[in-house]
Design a protein around this nucleic acid. Sequence first.
DNA 1: CACATAATCTAGAGCGCTCTAGTTAGTATT
DNA 2: AATACTAACTAGAGCGCTCTAGATTATGTG
Lengths: 331, 331
Amino acid sequence: MSRITMEDVAREAGVSRALVSIAYRDAVGVSDATKAHIIDVGTRLGYVPNRIAARLASKNVDTVGVFLQDLHNEVFADVFDGIRDIIDDSDAQLVLAVGRIDGSGDAAAIRALFESRVDVIIAAGLMMTDSEVRAVAQGTPLISVTRDVPGIDSVCADDVAGGTIATAHLIESGHTNIVFLSNPQTQGYQGRQRGYLEAITAAGLEPRIVPVTYDRHDAEVAAGLIVDSPHPPTAFFAHNDQTALGVLDAIVLRGLRPGKDIAVVGYDNTSLSQAPVIALTTVDPHSIELGRSAARQALTRMADAAGDAAAEARVSIVHEPTLVARASTAR
Amino acid sequence: MSRITMEDVAREAGVSRALVSIAYRDAVGVSDATKAHIIDVGTRLGYVPNRIAARLASKNVDTVGVFLQDLHNEVFADVFDGIRDIIDDSDAQLVLAVGRIDGSGDAAAIRALFESRVDVIIAAGLMMTDSEVRAVAQGTPLISVTRDVPGIDSVCADDVAGGTIATAHLIESGHTNIVFLSNPQTQGYQGRQRGYLEAITAAGLEPRIVPVTYDRHDAEVAAGLIVDSPHPPTAFFAHNDQTALGVLDAIVLRGLRPGKDIAVVGYDNTSLSQAPVIALTTVDPHSIELGRSAARQALTRMADAAGDAAAEARVSIVHEPTLVARASTAR
DNA sequence: CACATAATCTAGAGCGCTCTAGTTAGTATT
DNA sequence: AATACTAACTAGAGCGCTCTAGATTATGTG
């Protein structure tokens, strides 16, 4: 274990501990020459600053906690990329916590973030209910990304609009029997469903909503049952790309051709959907950009928590999603 | 911010600070009644223990740092799942750091882990050279997972064997012109290539190795060029599933059929390759199991760092990979 | 050259917790 | 009833850093 402390460096360099601290933090108050000397001695001794101690001692170490729902869903990787873009350019620290696909790890992950005394939390894809989120956010500012939580700072795409353009795209292509695959477990992706409903009813069509679990294989099975039913739809709109992939699986397994025989639309525009083998039509919520916005908002919240500017009211940033048409909806 | 400290709880509960500490840590030395009372007062006040302070004060808070190379590659999600399986059952803490796809974030991520004073680091997919890894591991035990680093505890699949069975599978299927798509940037996936070479030369065939970058689109372009070349191979063996997907893209874009016209084998058995739409033949390194092994080894290292049992020599755990044959290599 | 001003540097009091050593009370042993 | 335990609890010294207030030295100015 690294046993070298700031004290050791100070003694060896012949200066006070405080000066070593100043030097290592790039703060003002040390001459260039002394600073160089201190850093030099430090590296020679193999000194590694102890961030734990620094965090304890200082009120000014900005740290943002990031919660990612599921590492297996690439959306969260995209969001994280965006967050990092911004945070790397600030001098804030990042602390990461990840949930479990079924949502069972959310509370524990958020608690861990709290116990690490982060100044602000960016949560991507929390599965709890709105009120649970609000309850948990007590004290530390919480920014929800990819999901709008009333009462909480939120950064997300306009999912209702996204659901509408996806459905409208299908309707324009001549489909009249369109099934929406919803996710009952995930609180907060209701917007996509609402958008679907709006577009469907506006067109005077009959909505068909089927709930599926988060698991892609389950989605395949569920979609398969629907395809095999007496009145199979000609198009599916899945609440996310993962589920859409399951639908493609079901279609392919039955010897049918996505796009030609049955149209499929996903949501998220993960890099997967872009692959020519998949070529999934999908709604792009611009996840990276969402991550960036969320990170900027996080930085803002930290700033006005530091200076005691009256905490602004809840902020809701909504990005406009765009449709990306690919082969899965091309005849 | 949560301003309530242990002191506050102690005062309110009418006990000493130390007793609150004992109660909250589930340690022995407090009666059940008092403990219940303390916890009760604590929750009423909204007390959240400060793990930062705990870490500083205690020598006995086990924390394992996990480095994941790239959130966009699902292998790392699998490895992480395995790690968490084990760590969740211990009472160690997990600290996560993630790199960047091009390896540029590795050093910074590892440094952050060091500065967080983790007791042991599990690194999945480090892109540095072996000696850089060894240099960085000074002091803190470092366990490399998915990659064998000489001199460092490593948990990985037998990549040479993996490369061999993949190539042998292709040869048995009658292929004689097999291209291996290597990744020159990633140190340490050389085993897969070596396995390929062994199988190829054992069969008296001509090796063809083409380097591609980590980017899937680049892989598609590179594979495309090879397919369009005068003597296109009848089979590709890609160093990982991501790259294999790029190959599938190139094949599909040319109106060819994977499996039928050109065979493709990947490596990692990510959930993606299992999807019927993709149906990629691949080598399964049993990533989750690798994660579990690595975590167990991490726990062991921490234990013998605590008790001053003579630190054992370097441990290398090798799992046997298995071939998963799917449609991408079926005529 | 005395005095102000700025630039460096230091002392030492915390940050919120854990942990060792010790005190006090409660129960058992002979 | 004296002794020995054990269980329950407390005091206080850190952990390695940051930060405020003050000391010291260097620089400028009329």
